[in-house]
Amino acid sequence: MQSEVQAVRISSTPQRLEAMAPLLEAVSHAAGDVPALLALARDVGRTAPRPGDGGTAQLWELLASVTAVDVAAGRVLEPHLDAVAILAQASVEPADGAWGVFAAEGPGLRLDATADGTGKYVLNGSKPWCSLAARLDGAVLTAHLADGARAAFAVDLHAPGVSCETPQWTSRGLREIPSGTVHFDGVSAVPVGGPNWYFQRPGFAWGGMGVAACWFGGAVAVARDFSSALAAAADNGREPDQIALAHLGETDRIITSLAGYLARTAGRIDAGELSGSGAWSEALRVRGAVAAGVERVQTVVAQNLGPGPLAFNEAYGKRMADLSLYIRQHHAMRDDAQLGALTLKGDRSW
């Protein structure tokens, strides 16, 4: 199977992609070492394109390429870049360090923000699904206001009153990146935008599509594994049969179609066409299309390669397990139901 570090193309020239080679080599060497991956994320965040600033396709290529090297590395990089972009959109200067974004809600858990009269807020309560919280320096998170709205805040995760649970992470996927609950007891926080700004800004949809770019990169890596395995078998005298070739052709069709869709969507974001109410509908389409494509690629590759590489090839087995868990950030039919409701209201192009 392929082990060569290779960028993922969405729309850039080969020369631009080649410029990513040193970073991707560094990611390859840092795989499994979370502090090293966080250090790389901090470095990349200083110069990476931000969504909507004219280089959205290049940002997504960066995310996809890092994830193609190591899915967990993409899972580290994406939230840091998202946090940096969110703070920039709100004109808040981020403190140096590694950042995350914590916006999930969970049953029985609630995080409240109360104004302290100085322009800052005090956080009390708990936030679930906080990936790598104990290893991060800061986070952009959402909390409930007294009037029922939700707002975003920047918080120092080293501040007094912050305590991070260490979860019992039993998953074989993304083992380096456990997501636990963080508790806040009188923790000072800086507002990021106003009430409901976090969810209403165009960047909310753009960030969701950035996650899909990571999923896409994982699928490209799986597809490369498949192609390399068939080529190696052919070199050893075992030519692929028609079923294997048909599935490789289907995989190529899926990857090529998704790359084209991401390229067009990135262009629309940079042209200002996805800055209004239709941005979230397009995010649901992109995320749904990419998630379906990823799952199909994983299925046909696993069927063709069988149990051998899952049992004995560490890189392939890890990639499949990591990607299977990562893709579950997509809410499947519930996201399609949300898209259907928007479509019924007329938010469609057909």
Rank of each mutant, 00 (worst) to 15 (best):
G340K: 02
W206T: 06
A104H: 10
D112M: 06
E78A: 10
A36T: 13
G308S: 04
L284F: 10
P202Y: 02
G180T: 13
A41E: 08
F312G: 13
G186F: 01
V44K: 00
A246R: 15
A73E: 05
A139S: 15
A31I: 11
V76G: 00
G208M: 03
S227D: 11
Q168N: 14
I243N: 09
A115H: 06
M1I: 13
T67R: 01
F312A: 14
E25F: 10
F102S: 06
V290A: 02
I269N: 01
D347M: 15
N196S: 12
R75P: 07
L141E: 08
H331S: 12
V190C: 03
A337M: 12
G161M: 07
R334I: 00
E93C: 13
A149P: 07
L157S: 07
H183D: 05
F216G: 01
F204V: 06
C164H: 00
F199A: 07
A231E: 11
G100M: 03
A104P: 00
E105H: 11
S171P: 02
S12K: 04
I10V: 11
V162T: 08
R16I: 05
Y316R: 08
E282K: 08
R348F: 15
G237I: 08
R42N: 01
A271S: 10
K127H: 03
I254N: 02
A73V: 09
F102W: 11
R110E: 15
R9Y: 01
G74F: 00
L23G: 01
T265F: 05
D53T: 10
F184L: 10
L245I: 15
R9H: 05
L38T: 05
P51W: 00
E78L: 10
P79N: 06
R253G: 09
T166A: 01
L141G: 09
S3K: 08
N196E: 13
T251M: 14
I254Q: 02
G161H: 05
W99R: 06
G54Y: 10
A223V: 14
A19K: 06
L305E: 08
R201H: 06
G288F: 00
T166F: 04
